[in-house]
Design a protein around this nucleic acid. Structure first.
Length: 642
RNA sequence: GCUGACGUAGCUCAGUGGUAGAGCGCGUCCUUGGUAAGGACGAGGUCACGGGUUCAAUCCCCGUCGUCAGCUCCA
């Protein structure tokens, strides 16, 4: 019997029923046969050894397809698990999936694994690859599967099987290794060409901190050695750009054990960047009808009870202090303060929308293990704002915030971002406050705002806050990594709890809608991301030192000072490097410190009132009159060009 | 918070059961030089902190604090 197999280009292959995917690939071409990893047939992911029994659409997957890559890496995870079992026969298997840049496998092993152990495991993996044993799929009934993994003494696998359906359980076997697995896999272990084990860390079984902690080995795999090396090179590049490292070499910030973990000290140069960001932030907000406000750092415990933070956020709040017999708590959020200001007067529909923005410094107790440089800290300044508006204004306001976010991100050189609409999960209605109708309406409004701007977005079910749905924007940096950026959250909770009101056009009292939003997130986290995005080489408008003047000998220091005075008077951040060093040394020093412009001055320049311009990372740019160059720099600062 | 690794000069890191080293940086001096490191000399360390083992601990053991890789959680 012949079957019709339809290829992605629409062409049809007539083949005898029972032809395997591998045979199909070979019939198309030897290159595809060599590169094929798996296939998607009628929507189902299948292995190359699978016979095609009926006609249908097929896409043969290679490592270049995301799904093919996952199959490849998943097989690498199995090979790693087999290697671990050879070295540690008592190891129990957890799970071992492919992930974005590689794979991992969790093991329950009595002894702690070290980096040296990873090398040993890697060596055994290569032995397994050399053995080139085929992956075989075994279909099992549920009780057979239970028996098999009981015999193998794999308690975690048994737990997983017990939760599975009766039908369709499969295991994959290669050589002496069997693993519960949906598959598919590579045809054989010999197909693995390049892999590396990267790290080992603890991971809770099923992500539950009350269950046993397993040891997770991370690795990555590629189908070409060169690609693996390129990937490792990217990791190295990311390490070189790490904001903690750059922040130290550029003297931007520090964190002190003596002062307490997670608390950031902004050094003068870091503070210059922050000030530039904040000044820009303020003017961008004023331009869009925001009013700037300030609020205190502490408030009475009762306020946090009213806001509900005491119930939902207490574990993250820094302990109380007693003042005049009352209890005060350090603020973890700014919203209750803005609400008190809202309630300070009777509001009319004519007052709305009111947009109140504050660079508000908040403190949150974060568990010690999660602290990370500037990205996860215990004290941080949010670029917060709360918009109080009428229900009919929500869409316009949301559009306004998204536009503001787009504008600000583009100025900081983030041209690529992903938008996520975080909505509630109807199956977990007890997690949220408010009626289904309110949620439905709010989510529709957010979606409609995005649609109006013709923006693409993903919907993330269950990611809403307990008090309302949100739009989250993830910005993609120069290394292609996504960072949590702007977030816009609707809130049904606080207006209710604080009984917020406004007088409507109809003379009745109404409840305003409250929108919480940040554009940058927090100054700390945004700065950390920005450092990595630019690799420390800030554009001129942000650079701590915008130009360094380098006199060639002591004789030229006076001329250098003259330019310095002139530039500084025009607001350019300029320094003279008058140290007793050669030009080459000072140039190198300025390059390492990522100063955008180096202005070398000697006899020729002093004579003609010029500077010899050298641009960071680009080299010499020629000689221009120093006043002319000053205007160029001022223009660049004005434009905030990157 | 949990698991593991780590903590030596301002920084990056060697090193040893018998009181510690390099490079960079810093200081002084020489040198006055044209676009990514000129030379000489010098200062600088309670080897994270607290216990224990030992004749002797920076090194071995325990605890604490911190950092890192993750897990969990988040701006």
């Amino acid at each position: 019997m012949e079957i019709n197999i339809i290829l992605p280009d629409g062409s049809v292959k007539k083949l005898p029923a029972g032809t395997t995917v591998e045979e199909l690939a070979r019939s198309i071409g030897p290159g595809l046969a060599r590169d094929a990893v798996a296939a998607r047939f009628e929507g189902r992911l299948i292995g190359l050894a699978e016979p095609l029994e009926h006609g249908g659409h097929i896409t043969i997957l290679t490592f270049d397809d995301p799904e093919g890559r996952d199959v490849y890496r998943h097989s690498a995870a199995h090979v790693m698990a087999q290697a671990v079992k050879r070295l540690y026969p008592d190891a129990r298997l957890g799970i071992g999936p492919a992930i974005a840049d590689g794979f991992y496998y969790d093991f329950d092993i009595d002894e702690a694994l070290t980096p040296e152990d990873l090398e040993r495991i890697e060596a055994v993996m290569w032995e397994i690859v050399d053995e080139d044993t085929p992956f075989e799929c075994i279909a099992l009934e549920k009780d057979e599967a239970l028996d098999l993994f009981e015999e193998l003494d794999e308690e975690y696998k048994q737990e997983m099987i017990r939760e599975m359906e009766e039908q369709g359980i499969t295991a994959y076997k290669h050589g002496d290794f069997v693993d519960l697995c949906r598959g598919p896999h590579l045809p054989s272990t010999g197909r693995l060409k390049a892999f590396k084990l990267l790290s080992v860390a603890g991971a809770y079984w099923r992500g539950d901190e009350y269950r046993p902690q397993l040891q997770r080995i991370y690795g990555t795999a590629f189908d070409k050695q060169a690609d693996l090396e390129q990937h490792l090179e990217r990791l190295e590049q990311a390490r070189l750009r790490d904001h903690r490292r750059v922040g130290r070499t550029l003297d931007l910030f520090s964190i002190h054990e003596e002062g307490g973990p997670g608390l950031v000290y902004w050094h003068p140069k870091g503070a210059v960047v922050r000030t530039a960001i904040e000044d820009f932030w303020r003017s961008a907000h004023r331009d869009r009808g925001y009013d700037l406000v300030y609020s205190p750092h502490i408030a009475k415990k009762e306020l946090w009870a009213t806001s509900g933070h005491l119930d939902t956020f207490q574990d993250s709040m820094f302990g109380s202090m007693e003042v005049d017999g009352g209890e005060y708590i350090l603020k973890p959020m700014n919203c209750p303060f803005h609400i008190l200001m809202y309630k300070n007067a009777t509001r009319s529909y004519r007052d709305l929308p009111m947009r109140w923005a504050e660079l508000g410094t908040v403190y949150r107790y974060e568990r010690s293990g999660v602290l990370h440089g500037l990205l996860r800290v215990r004290g941080f300044t949010q670029d917060d704002a709360h918009i109080f508006c009428r229900p009919d204004q929500v869409e316009d306001e949301v559009v306004g915030v998204v536009r503001l976010a787009q504008y600000m991100l583009s100025v900081f050189g983030y041209t690529d971002y992903q938008i996520v609409l975080s909505v509630h999960d109807e199956l977990e209605s007890d997690k949220y406050i408010g009626t289904p109708e309110i949620w439905e309406e709010a989510e529709t409004k957010l979606a409609r705002s995005l649609d109006r701007m013709a923006l693409d977005y993903e919907i993330d079910v269950g990611e809403a806050k307990f008090y309302g749905p949100a739009i989250d924007i993830k910005m993609v940096d120069a290394l292609g990594r996504a960072w949590q950026g702007p977030t816009i959250q609707l809130d049904f909770n606080l207006p209710e709890r604080f009984d917020l009101e406004y007088a409507g056009e109809d003379g009745h009292v109404h409840r305003p809608v409250m929108i919480h939003r940040t554009v940058l997130g927090s100054m700390e986290r945004f700065f950390g991301g920005l450092i990595e995005h630019y690799g420390g080489a800030f554009p001129v408008w942000l650079a701590p030192v915008q130009a360094v003047i380098i006199p060639i000998t002591d004789d030229h220091v006076e001329y250098a000072r003259e330019i310095e005075r002139d530039y500084a008077a025009h607001g350019i951040r300029v320094e003279v490097d008058d140290r007793n060093e050669k030009v080459g040394y000072k140039i190198r020093n300025a390059e390492v410190e990522k100063v955008p412009y180096m202005l070398v001055v000697g006899d020729r320049e002093a004579e003609a009132e010029t500077v010899s311009v050298r641009s960071r990372g680009e080299g010499e740019k020629g000689t221009v009159a120093y006043r002319e160059f000053r205007e160029d720099v001022l223009g660049e600062i004005e434009e905030r060009s990157s």
